[in-house]
């Protein structure tokens, strides 16, 4: 695997990992993010770790692109990856809580019951905490095909909505706009769960 570090505006760098498998790249990014946080590089303010890239934001009055890039290349992510925690998420599928379930079933050529079965059988892996509000961005889909996004994003998706798109799954932690397909809803308050990248979500169907 190769690490490429490039400026991203006057106050950030983007470190991208290429080569290896999807899993390898994601692990490398996560180790790098942990190392950056552990090293406490002077002037670094924030990091955003995703599938294959790490955004590192810094105060350009306190440090330079070269210094931070050097620290990234030297960072040694040796910390052990913690054992994943499994979260069980109760979901009411379909109906008013999952208005797109019929559409998802039609896209996949499956019954709604099959969609629910595949969704609950999948150990969904949290890859990173994204938008909005730290939403768990999950992959590991066992659906036979990727799922398209809504042609017109909703302006208000209710908090707790369980959604799918492409080969990914997400839960909306807060009421927000969104373009993913809503198949169910959980009463759990996501903000209280404290999940981390690598953790696993198992969904359970409740009538």
């Amino acid at each position: 695997m190769t690490l490429t570090v490039a400026p991203y505006g006057d106050s950030a760098l983007l470190a991208t990992v290429s080569g290896g498998s999807v899993e390898d790249r994601w692990l490398a990014v996560r180790r790098l993010a942990d190392a950056v946080e552990a090293d406490g590089i002077p002037g670094v303010l924030d990091v955003v770790a995703t599938y294959d890239a790490l955004l590192v934001e810094f105060d350009c009055a306190r440090t330079t692109h070269d210094e931070v890039a050097g620290a990234l290349r030297d960072a040694r992510g040796t910390a052990a990856v913690p054992t994943p925690t499994t979260y069980r998420i109760p979901v009411v599928y379909g109906g008013e809580h999952g208005p797109d379930l019929p559409d998802v079933a039609a896209q996949l050529g499956l019954t709604e019951r099959d969609v629910v079965r595949l969704h609950t059988e999948t150990p969904w892996v949290v890859r990173f905490r994204g938008a909005p509000a730290g939403a768990p961005m999950m992959d590991g889909s066992r659906f036979p095909a990727p799922i398209s996004r809504c042609p017109r994003p909703r302006t208000h998706v209710p908090a707790g909505s369980v959604a799918v798109s492409g080969r990914q799954a997400v839960i909306y932690p807060v009421r927000s706009p969104g373009g993913w397909r809503l198949i169910g809803r959980t009463p759990l308050r996501l903000l209280d769960l404290g999940y981390r990248p690598g953790d696993v979500f198992r969904f359970e169907s409740h009538g």
Partner: peptide, 10 residues
């Protein structure tokens, strides 16, 4: 494109 971190001002 794969989702990646994006800075303010992008």
């Amino acid at each position: 494109l794969l989702s990646r971190g994006v800075p303010v001002g992008a």
